[in-house]
Each structure stands twice: as structure tokens, then as C-alpha cells.
Simulated assay, not measured.
Amino acid sequence: MSTTSKQSAQKQQALEILVRLKRLYPEAPCTLNYETPVQLLVATILSAQCTDQRVNKVTPELFRRFPDAAALASAELEVLEELVRSTGFYRNKAKNIQAACRMIMTEFGGKVPKRMENLLKLPGVARKTANVVLAHAYGINAGVTVDTHVKRLSQRLGLTENTDPIRIERDLMPLLPLPEWENFSIRLIYHGREICKARKPECFACNLAEICPSADLFLN
């Protein structure tokens, strides 16, 4: 199969997956709780190697005490560490949150930037976090968020052969309408949590099984 034919087949596959995921998960909101862009930024940093449920248990007290970038920038680091301890890697996360908020105050006028290149300057922020913040705080689809679920499902569903998140993102973007980029990721995440699990995918109960090139591997 030529490269053009392969890309065309993958695009048809992606669009069919999108249609089915929309039926399965009509609503696709961000599952992190936040009220402001900086709170979403902080929550997303905390979500690395941690469930959104755990993050949502931590952030109410964190944001009650430190509701904005100015407060987080001037907080005692040890206090931040203790508040986010249960999310794992808490020392590094607390350090990055404080450093990011200090940069927001000094370089971006106290506001989370709306441009990808500026977000990526913030400590602790890679494309995954930047995509989430831009999409849900500002309504800007700058890319496709690739977490462990999106990586696993996009490989199993035949949408990419890459393993690097940035290359996976580059593979997915031309396959989908731009307005669907972020919510496609969220729906894949929902499906990964409920059905297409890492160790034992429930292909027998999957609405995508008939169009999934990996289903036979797990069903047999």
C-alpha cells in the first residue's frame, strides 16, 4: 500500500472511530476540577502519573489556600509539597508549579499565556499539559493531547506506529477535524479507562472491536 493510500485509510479509520466514540461518550468534558486557567494548569501538572480523581481530592484545599498565580508563586515550598504529596513525585511537582507561577507573574503579566510556545517555556509544562490548558481554558485546539491511554489506543486502533508522544500527535492531527482534536483525546481516555485497558482490554464488550486491527489478538 502506498503512503497516500495508507494515510487515506487511516483517516477513514479515525473518522469512523470518532463517530463511534461520540455515540458512546456524547459529553467529553475535562475531568479535572478548576475555575481559572492557572488552576487548570496546576491541576494538569499534578495529574502526571496520577489519576484525575486523586488530583480532584487535592486541589480544593490547595486552591483555597493559594487560589492564583501570585499566591502560588509566594507560597512556602514545603507547604505546597505537603498539600500535593498524595499525587506522587510531589517535590518535583511543587517546585515546577511554583516556578511556573513565578514566570507567569514576571513574564506574562500574571496570566497563563495563550500561545503554545509561551506555555512550553513554563517549568513542568510539555505539549500534553499545554494542549489541555489551551483547549479547556481558552478554547484553542493547538494539538492532540497524548497521554498513556491515547498512546495505547491510537496504536491498537491502527492510527499510528510510533511510540513517541510528539510523533503520535503529529500522526493524529491530520486524521481528524481540528475542532475535534481535544475531545477526541478525552473520548479515547474514557474508552481506555472503561474498556480498552492496558493489561486486559475488554474487546468482547467494545463497540470498536469490529474495526480494531488489534481485537483479534486479544479475543483469540
Rank of each mutant, 00 (worst) to 15 (best):
K6Q: 15
V55H: 00
L159E: 06
I45D: 01
R102S: 15
E81D: 06
F184Q: 05
T160Y: 04
A94Q: 03
E81T: 00
A48R: 10
V38L: 09
R167V: 08
Q10R: 13
R170K: 12
L80W: 03
R167K: 12
A14V: 07
R167D: 09
A130P: 01
V112H: 09
V19K: 15
I186E: 00
S86Y: 07
C101L: 07
L153D: 03
K114Y: 07
T3P: 14
Y34Q: 04
P165L: 09
L175Q: 06
N220C: 09
N96M: 12
R54M: 05
V58M: 05
Y25T: 06
T160P: 02
E81L: 00
I186P: 01
R127I: 04
E76S: 01
M103A: 12
N118T: 09
K57P: 02
C101H: 02
T36F: 02
F108Q: 15
C206H: 05
P29C: 01
T129S: 00
L72Q: 02
A9S: 13
S47T: 05
Q53Y: 03
G109Q: 11
T163A: 14
V55Y: 01
R152H: 08
P37R: 05
S8L: 13
A75M: 00
V112A: 10
Q7S: 14
L153K: 02
N33V: 12
V42G: 03
A142C: 11
G143F: 01
E210L: 07
C196R: 04
S154C: 04
R156H: 02
N96Y: 15
R152Y: 06
K128H: 06
N220Y: 08
K114C: 08
I168N: 08
K95F: 12
Q12P: 07
V112R: 08
R187W: 03
R91L: 10
I211F: 11
L159N: 08
I189D: 03
K111G: 14
